[in-house]
Design a protein around this nucleic acid. Sequence first.
DNA 1: TCTGGGACTGATAACGATTCTCACCCTCGG
DNA 2: CCGAGGGTGAGAATCGTTATCAGTCCCAGA
Lengths: 155, 155
Amino acid sequence: MTAPTHADETPAGPDIDDEVLLLLRRADQRYTTGRRRLVAALQSGDGPLTINQILDVDRSLAQSSVYRNLMVLEQVGAVVRIVTRDEFARYELAEHLTEHHHHLICTSCGDVADFALDDSMESSLDEALHKAADTRGFAVDAHRLDLLGTCGDCG
Amino acid sequence: MTAPTHADETPAGPDIDDEVLLLLRRADQRYTTGRRRLVAALQSGDGPLTINQILDVDRSLAQSSVYRNLMVLEQVGAVVRIVTRDEFARYELAEHLTEHHHHLICTSCGDVADFALDDSMESSLDEALHKAADTRGFAVDAHRLDLLGTCGDCG
DNA sequence: TCTGGGACTGATAACGATTCTCACCCTCGG
DNA sequence: CCGAGGGTGAGAATCGTTATCAGTCCCAGA
Ligand SMILES: [Mn+2]
Ligand SMILES: [Mn+2]
Ligand SMILES: [Zn+2]
Ligand SMILES: [Zn+2]
């Protein structure tokens, strides 16, 4: 659904940059070096990253610029802000740039990792969700599914 | 699984107080009037409440005490803290005091309402989730499922 | 019933992640 | 080559949340 490069390994990222560029252009924003490095940092982890994790991945980034640019990228629709359990927000690339997925949240170390469900489960779940939402007059845009527990490192 | 009062209407709450009392006693904590009013306030809405909503429901409560008591009740396992989209945390009674459910989060007004899935859907979902988690060496404690969209009032 | 210690309360100060400010820099069209 | 406007980043300001602490309240023991 998102034109994967080939198989389904790392969605890799030549075209991701192009997509982000388009999204920014559409809002009269520039795709500067700092913003490129930021997007690259987000691609590096296998889950959403906190501000500090981003700064740690790329020491050339300034904290205030990261905050501002993440806000810009979020408004433009390239990045999603995620709040889990702890006091730190996390950011990841929007799903239309990667793939639909969910999160394993470790209640011990706080780390967050991605995972996905089979397509069949996704679609039957979606159907059930829409049905449930309809009866409450709620128009569904997206669903969010997290698992809380203990990660392999903390097990 | 939680000894509902009878049908599945308002789980009502004589026994909820008893449960909370036990949980607090177990931790050498008292179930004071302020804490009872707090639990009552949480029962009043049909979704998790923010601190301000709680203070609004019961004007006799002091902000700092509400914050502290919510922390105590959370440590004791009677209350769960929920962070959704906005900057305000929300609190609700733990599911073993009520029923397993999920949340409809309105991205327009920020309001959060409860909803539930059929038992069959829940169990097949749980199975799929455990299977997915196992392959990542992740031990599941609970799942969290939210719908993002527009509520009836904002529609 | 009286009493002491410990839990609880609530106004207030402190904290910290995030957001805002603003002088400076850089880029791009003319 | 300029000038206007977007971008940058260090620091200040914001604000939800937490920690303090003196005063209360409650309960067990005398
Ligand atoms: Mn999903
Ligand atoms: Mn569920
Ligand atoms: Zn962990
Ligand atoms: Zn709404």
